[in-house]
Design a protein around this nucleic acid. Structure first.
Lengths: 141, 141
DNA sequence: GGTTAGTTTAGAATTATTCTAAATCTTGAC
DNA sequence: GTCAAGATTTAGAATAATTCTAAACTAACC
């Protein structure tokens, strides 16, 4: 129901963006709100449509800019599956994505947080895991 | 050095494609050869450019068609990183991708083949793991 | 209160991918 | 062998996703 973030979120936003040398603007706030409000891994286009409801003047380029700002500041992640548009996810917990091949829904799934062993010398900054399969709902149909 | 697959590869190709109801065509052979020849995770556009050298009449749409055919038949995998073009990989071993944030190179890395635990009811068909970080080469510079 | 740097905007441009309709090839039935 | 049916390829148009551009706006700072 809420259309805006709570004050503590705003504080957090300002800090995280600030640490990357970026400002908190109404647009970035709005885009972040959209991500938090419905965590269904929307595409940039979807975010644009949703953000427009509260902020009709917002532009396409701004949505991309805001999403990039959020990603750079560690407030959201990009989720790329197959050849379609990139999706966005505000869940910064270490997690993977389960993509149902039937209904196309994307679910967050916990990871065994296992030490993903890498060859000597490689330094991992973060990883994205995309699992493709069938979700319980589709499986029972 | 070799520009063509060996006979046993051809056999394999025919079988794998056949199992999916697809034919082995010179174009599909060529596209597969390109993938095998230089395993640097090329984009469809890259594959197109390389395939053209041996087969100048090949078209863009055909390259996409062939890549899709190979992916459907389990001969290649799609690799999607960030927002750019999709890349292709003929390594069908269970593995993840390490993406160097500095030089952009994509490395295949073995997985602990661990039982990626999923919530009850989810059935995994396959997964893609993309690891972002710094490769040894870039790290030493 | 003016300067500077960061941000937003609309719309154009570019890039990636898919679609279309016609031409070509393959295969299997006769 | 020959023909119809279906699969595949082709060039180019169309669409979708993303980035770029230049001008206008905003906020912070001296």
């Amino acid at each position: 129901m809420k259309a805006r973030s709570q004050p503590q979120d705003e504080q957090h936003l300002t800090e995280q963006l600030g640490a990357t040398g970026l400002r908190l603007t109404p647009q970035r706030q709005q885009v972040y709100d959209v991500l938090l409000h419905k965590r269904d891994h929307p595409t940039a286009e979807e975010v644009f449509i949703r953000a427009k409801k509260a902020m009709p003047e917002i532009s396409h380029a701004t949505v991309y800019n805001c999403l990039d700002a959020l990603v750079k500041s560690g407030l959201a992640r990009q989720v790329t599956l197959d050849r379609g548009a990139t999706r966005y996810c505000p869940n910064m917990h270490e997690h993977g994505h389960f993509h149902c091949s039937s209904c196309e829904t994307v679910f967050d799934v916990d990871l065994p947080a296992q030490a993903m062993k890498l060859p000597k010398g490689f330094k991992a900054e973060h990883f994205d895991i995309a699992i493709h399969g069938i979700c319980p709902d589709c499986d029972s149909k």
